[in-house]
Nucleic acid binder design. Structure first.
Lengths: 233, 233
DNA sequence: CGTGTAATTGAGTAGGGTCAACGTGAGTGG
DNA sequence: CCACTCACGTTGACCCTACTCAATTACACG
């Protein structure tokens, strides 16, 4: 357990007693694909860190539609802030893949923060990054067309969970997680139909290689052009 | 100066030496309506707190459209996180009104944080609240129609800078800041034309009393119904 | 009273949502 | 190994929301 904790960038550097305390209040959890880690509205009693696989946070709207707030990969914390506020989880967290997480009691995290202040600075930095990304998405959703948003979402995913693939000399980027049209729609604020149509267009143009729940970027540069709206229409 | 600082909730409670240090690196600034406090891309050397008036943070899109990230009123910090990262401001900050702000050098804020850790906890709470609001907006922009988003934006503003007005026994809520159709459009991710049309509808239905750059909510409850989509279409 | 900015309103249009039908691939069990 | 099933994906037709373009009006200010 201690070994896992010390590999998490957010926690590494903390003095041994602090880590020990955290370890005592941690538990490992295995999640099958599609399994729910916590549900929107549950009291937030623990903070979770992804150790393997990918996990996503979704919010349900009253109209039944789901919106993906974020996708979290290796060593990223989920539910970090809520735990500090003794609040309830703002969304539902679902494993996208066979995943393992380590769950640490909120109380232990709060203790660690007060005992080891630099920890708080790291938390602030993470929050800062998330807020910036949220603002980016707000800007996109407010002003940009679906194709462009989709291109950006795909590139963001590639950045986060992309792996380079060399197939007979050609380098491509594979999005390393199951990725349905539906989940892309929930990431970009559109419908799976529109996503499907756009991906088909890109496929025809040779930009990507899309399959069932998977996506390989063949020509990243051209996708960037779409994301930056540098293509003349 | 010290007096101003000690009235800011985020800083109140800090020990005197910390406040003294902050005060030495603070300066007051008066902003006329429309004046720019800082510009997108400027190096973030200071954190600002609103002492009077209102200020808004906007981001420019490549397509020329502006998006309002947030409106900040009494005692709210602007540029808080960026200063910690030695980064550049993510948007342009503009006074909506005749306003005064107190600007504190980023270095002094960082010193205060390390010398007085509880300060960081407060910062985390503020960031948490902002992130939640950002997620709300993402959810709205992804899934909801313009009229509903507009209703929510108006209610949020009322919550933040609304003042109750009693006119011969009738209680109404006035949004206490200059508020053009254009700025409402930038808050909701639409165009001023659509905002104008919807406000006209609401006006006709007697929900609001809209004028040039001002808005009074006459029947808040019905606006809530629209915001919650409880009106049968 | 003139001028500039904000607001209104109409007409036309397109992006993308909705509805619907069909195709396809991965498991599952006989 | 094949048939069955289910979830995922594709594509077409239609339509509506909201954007664009454009002209006009109202208001505040000097």
């Amino acid at each position: 357990m201690l070994d896992h904790l010390s590999h998490i960038p957010l926690l590494s550097g903390a003095p041994a007693p602090v880590l020990d305390d955290l370890a005592r209040e941690s538990r490992l959890r295995n999640l099958a694909r599609g399994e729910i880690l916590f549900t929107q509205g549950d009291p937030a009693l623990a903070v979770h860190f992804v150790l393997s696989g990918r996990v996503r946070l979704i919010q349900h709207t009253t109209s039944g539609q789901d919106v993906t707030i974020g996708v979290f990969a290796l060593h990223e914390p989920v539910g970090l802030l809520v735990a500090l506020e003794e609040a309830t989880y703002p969304g539902t967290c679902e494993a996208l893949d066979q995943s393992t997480v380590i769950s640490i009691s909120a109380a232990a995290i709060v203790r660690a923060m007060t005992q080891y202040p630099p920890f708080m600075l790291k938390v602030i930095k993470i929050l800062h990054a998330r807020l910036m990304e949220a603002n980016d998405r707000i800007r996109e959703l407010s002003a940009e067309r679906v194709e462009r948003r989709l291109a950006r979402a795909v590139l963001r995913l590639a950045n986060k969970v992309g792996v380079k693939e060399e197939t007979h000399g050609v380098s491509r980027i594979r999005i390393d997680m199951p990725l349905s049209r539906q989940s892309l729609a929930e990431l970009t604020g559109t419908t799976l139909h529109t996503v499907s149509r756009i991906l088909s267009d890109w496929q025809r143009a040779g930009l990507i290689d899309a399959g069932r729940e998977q996506l390989v970027i063949v020509r990243p540069h051209e996708l960037v052009l779409i994301a930056e709206e540098l293509t003349q229409p």
